[in-house]
Amino acid sequence: MQGAIPPEKIATSIANHQSKTNIGAHSIFLGQIRADEIDGKTVSAIEYTAYEEMAETVFHEIREAAFSKFDMTCCHIYHSLGPVKTGEICLFVFTSSAHRKVAIEACNFLVEEIKARVPIFGKEIFEDETHQWKVNS
């Protein structure tokens, strides 16, 4: 989705699952933009771009892999495109299951797979408007 993920979207997503009473546990991961200091300059935002067609395909593969590996009830993934300021949310992964262990493990699996496999690129923009390219550690 374009820009930061609003906190209200997370609340709404939780509310939308309250009618699904076979769910006993949700696990949520939120990625937030950190104001890293690099060589005396502070990050003010990250601008995300992606190879969008491939990213969609890989997100789909990762979801399918998670559903075949874990007994999840449902699973939602949102990642920002475009600029996201420090303190704002850029990744929202939401897994639901009958029991907590499955929800938590599935959520971890999805986050690690997203970081490793989805062609998303991040430009770290500093307060002085210079930039550098982010690399996942």
């Binding site: 990625g31 190879y51 997203i114 970081k115 490793a116 062609p119 690129f121 390219w133 690399v135």
Partner: peptide
């Protein structure tokens, strides 16, 4: 053919 730098999602 796509040239992809290191990924930085999340």
């Amino acid at each position: 053919v796509a040239f992809l730098p290191p990924f930085a999602g999340g």
